[in-house]
Write a protein that binds this DNA or RNA. Sequence first.
DNA 1: TAATTACATTTGTAGGACAAATAAACAACC
DNA 2: GGTTGTTTATTTGTCCTACAAATGTAATTA
Lengths: 236, 236
Amino acid sequence: MKASALGPMESLSMTDRVENILREYLMDNGFKPGDSLPNETEIAQKLNVSRNVVREALSRLRMLGLIESRTRRGMIMAQPDLFAGIEKVMSPSILSHDNQKDLFELRLILEMGIAEFLFARKTDKDLEELEAIVNKQKGLKSLSREDEIEFHGKLYEMTGNDTFRRFQTLLFPVFDHVFKEYLEKGVHMDLPNPVSHADLFEVLKNGTAGQFRNAMYVHLTPYFTTTLKNGVQAPS
Amino acid sequence: MKASALGPMESLSMTDRVENILREYLMDNGFKPGDSLPNETEIAQKLNVSRNVVREALSRLRMLGLIESRTRRGMIMAQPDLFAGIEKVMSPSILSHDNQKDLFELRLILEMGIAEFLFARKTDKDLEELEAIVNKQKGLKSLSREDEIEFHGKLYEMTGNDTFRRFQTLLFPVFDHVFKEYLEKGVHMDLPNPVSHADLFEVLKNGTAGQFRNAMYVHLTPYFTTTLKNGVQAPS
DNA sequence: TAATTACATTTGTAGGACAAATAAACAACC
DNA sequence: GGTTGTTTATTTGTCCTACAAATGTAATTA
């Protein structure tokens, strides 16, 4: 029986192995941002591979923001960017359909989940800025993608959690794409939204986290009902 | 005035540029999994860079799962792994404190947000398996990390959203680390949890999505109160 | 026709070379 | 002595060549 019959052989390239070795080395030895790494030739010799292989592995770590390097100064550990890797594949044209559906649902969860954080951290200044956005949108017949992003983006900003905000920005194109797909499949959204941005603002200003969550649920109902084919129970 | 005085100069390396060019090329031309790419030397010539630079850029795309390559067969577009990039930096020892706090909160949101999906998609088989887990844990005085992962992991599995599940797995080490930090800072958790896994199971079996969300909120209250210093309103 | 063999092509790895940048050591000057 | 300019050495960034391994393709043969 040939090895290939046993499955996808999984033979890692030298670069793959060196990449793993380097990451484990950095983790296990508690490297912190600013700490300097051995130079390339030293690594290559130690691992018995060519400098090319080492550089390909380092190039990957550099892309993730794990390391930075300057000529002569050498390489130093850096603060990795949490989204550096994921943002490069976050595109509707290449993600699997399953992934897109999953991410669509993830955004729905986020939109509702920020309620507690909004009420714990909202400030008067935030509310004023949000009100300005709402007022600007009041005159419009229909909201553009940019309008949606502006309102919901401001909400994420108000959570005091920058990761939420960046995540939502990343998710939006996929969300938008999936929803368009639903529309093309015959899902209609003719009805005016029973909960507008102005309504959400009002609840955020004078209501409770629970009320806001419910309002957001209604605001998002068209999306929920399209993704949850089996129907979904409203919050208590 | 020197250029360096104007800020971090942002001078991309050739590899960075080629990486961007290649990704844009793949996106703009609608490459789908299975489509074959030009070979390395061809790319190098077209872009007027050395094959080394091209290989470093391709190595990055390979890490993200965007492309695959075999000798002689050439390179082909692949289905990128959404988490390939992020999982390599998802470690408490290297993420910034802010990132860790943000991710801690993100998991709280996810735990509560899956309620609607659980109720829309739960099956009898799922419930049986979850009950088995709960019964196994009933005899224990305290739950280990593995017990927690088993129960909550099963919940994520039941959502029918594999991305949730993988995300939670990724988040757990960070979540755990942040919480330990809170404990060390004097936050106490002596009180027995007012909502046990068994309680959650009961609500999932016979209750509503809203009830489950509230139950989960209480189950997670210790975590919410530690992260939301200002206090937080309970769901309506 | 079918199987086998030889060939050609493409990625993977190695190693050498040099440019650019710059930290460190040194020299010169006030 | 302290500052400033100069030289030197080191490290990354880029290019080049070469070859091994794998494998698709074509030629050859039974």
